[in-house]
Nucleic acid binder design. Structure first.
Lengths: 343, 343
DNA sequence: CTGAAAGCGCTTACAG
DNA sequence: CTGAAAGCGCTTACAG
């Protein structure tokens, strides 16, 4: 009986073509030992001839000690180089284990993040890596995870007991403020993400703590936070520097898009040599602008790599208590952060 | 009999808990009509109580007219902003259809690309989007695709009959060269990717064609191609500009990483005001450098969006002949491309 | 409106 | 060394 040619061949078809049982095909396809040379050859030929590609879904359905076949990654936005570098680091770790990465952007929307995690669980990813938009574990569908391992990246929601890898944002912010103080600044502003986001809140806290430790005045109109696009940051910072009659002499830009927006605003106002700036996260070509942009680099590729390693360790059955891995780099001085106070 | 609590609940468990048949649970979970209010309620309660999450693998295994649940995307490197923006565009298209994207980087390695496509087919993605490293369809495992739709992105392997979306690289390169000629240049160099890559080859051809059309001399030592990292491009272009005693007065940089490397080299040599430069693909902060970097922008997000739309149209059953979608933008003049010849 | 049986494409557990 | 039967968690096709 002729079968429709368009249908994808199954193990059954290969077995029929090779004149062996289904189980023998399974053995050959999975490189199990103990099949005679002759049968291996016949099966391999049938596989090649029919262009048989095993169905991973069916395979993992019954499989007991399955090695991970895919992992999930939820972040706010892949098109941000910070996250795409993390993804690349993750990919490399996964690749070594013949594992693929299902990734998705949440745009820092709790609802969306929750839906994405749900979708990933439905697809039965072996594990999850999440840059959570929220502190509220409810949104993380934690209960639905069951035995699925989870690693938090660049965040640590309250009262969780999962592995996490992140930049030491508090120490980073303190270092940036201290750097500016060391160069004579007393009037220092802060521009950063909405403090609903874990990392943003730590940075802001670091700013406050460093300012207080140095007994410097904090003015609320020198602190600008929000959930903005790069373009919106340009507009926001234009207003920030324009309206203040008593401007800060230096600012901390607590995220790569914030830095870009701020630098653009400073240039438009012709203030790039007047107001000192240190940015968190390195930005491309920051060294070729005048003055060069001083930054505290993050190591996104390394963050992704480490998160991946932690996840796979759990998948390999590690039972150690939750690990909290912190990364911190040194400030790269390029000029903008070393400008003296303009008044 | 007590079951282990760690095991993920199945439809069977929900049925038992709700005191209904498996099929009724299936009906409720899939929002099928014709189940009594009473049973819907009992099933919903059991689902919530057990935190049941359906298994997408099992669901799609038997499902006949399944709507796509995941698509695959193969590119050279997610950490390149060009590709991560494409991915984001794809994601948005997929999101509207409750579809997830499995993506992976090939590093322009044919062998790796082939393995990735094979892995995606094994996972039975509904369709594929590929930025192919190669012209050789053999590496694309085309035969293994069977009925799985494929859309080529930023490339068009020889003799294929698939949908494709890409930048008009030939016209783009011609436009860049013409722009430089218009500003008085006759000695124009070309820096770009290895011409084994489809898009790179078209750009180089565009350069040759535009130079020939203008009857300008082409010197092979003014053409530098290769498969290099951004860092390597800085080194390569340092050498390029340093060694030539008869330097070109202008260059075309045919890719974002090439542009970055070249600009850095020009600045290190202090030649940024001597040698004109137009880059393909916009680069972040290119407007704030002195001189500003003139570019021919690409529209990666739009490329991803369109490729996604084409793929889903096929998945919806469209039978039209293969579509070839070409995008082209206008040059953004910022200074570097409008410098007069230095001799 | 509800459910028992067969099947999707594989693996497991067992028998020869 | 090889294979027939049962099962993974669902959907389909059918019966009541």
């Amino acid at each position: 009986m002729q079968k429709p040619i368009s249908r994808r061949p199954t193990m059954r078809d290969v077995a029929d073509a090779a004149g062996v049982s289904l189980k023998t095909v399974s053995r050959v396809v999975n490189n199990e030992i103990g099949v005679s040379q002759d049968l291996v050859l016949r099966v391999d030929q049938a596989v090649t001839q029919l262009r048989y590609v095993p169905d991973e879904r069916a395979r993992t359905l019954r499989l007991l000690d399955a090695r991970p076949s895919s992992i999930g990654f939820v972040m706010s936005d892949v098109s941000n180089p910070f996250f795409s570098s993390i993804l690349r680091g993750l990919e490399e770790t996964a690749r070594a284990r013949h594992c693929l990465v299902l990734s998705a952007s949440s745009d820092n929307d709790d609802q969306r993040q929750s839906e994405l995690i749900q979708s990933l669980i439905q697809r039965r990813v072996a594990g999850l890596i999440v840059v959570s938009s929220s502190d509220d574990l409810h949104w993380l569908a934690i209960e639905d995870l069951r035995e699925t391992p989870l690693v938090f990246l660049d965040c640590e929601p309250a009262e969780h007991s999962y592995d996490s890898v992140r930049t030491d944002h508090h120490a980073g912010a303190v270092a940036m403020v201290t750097h500016l103080i060391k160069h004579g600044h007393r009037h220092i502003g802060f521009l950063g993400d909405d403090s609903g986001i874990f990392s943003a809140r730590l940075r802001l806290q670091g700013y406050y703590d460093a300012m207080n430790d140095a007994q410097l005045p904090i003015r609320e109109d020198w602190v600008r936070t929000g959930h903005l696009t790069p373009q919106e940051w340009t507009t926001a910072t234009l207003k920030f520097f324009d309206s203040a009659d008593e401007r800060p002499t230096a600012v901390v830009a607590a995220q790569n898009f914030v830095t870009i927006g701020t630098v653009r605003a400073l240039h438009q106002l012709g203030l790039q040599h007047q107001i000192a700036l240190v940015g968190l996260d390195d930005i491309e070509l920051g060294d070729l602008i005048t003055p060069g942009i001083s930054v505290l680099p993050q190591r996104p590729f390394e963050l992704g790599r480490r998160a991946g390693e932690l996840l796979f360790k759990r998948l390999d059955g590690a039972r150690q208590p939750a690990v909290r891995d912190l990364l911190l780099s040194d400030i790269v001085a390029r000029g903008s952060g070393e400008l003296p106070p303009s008044r």
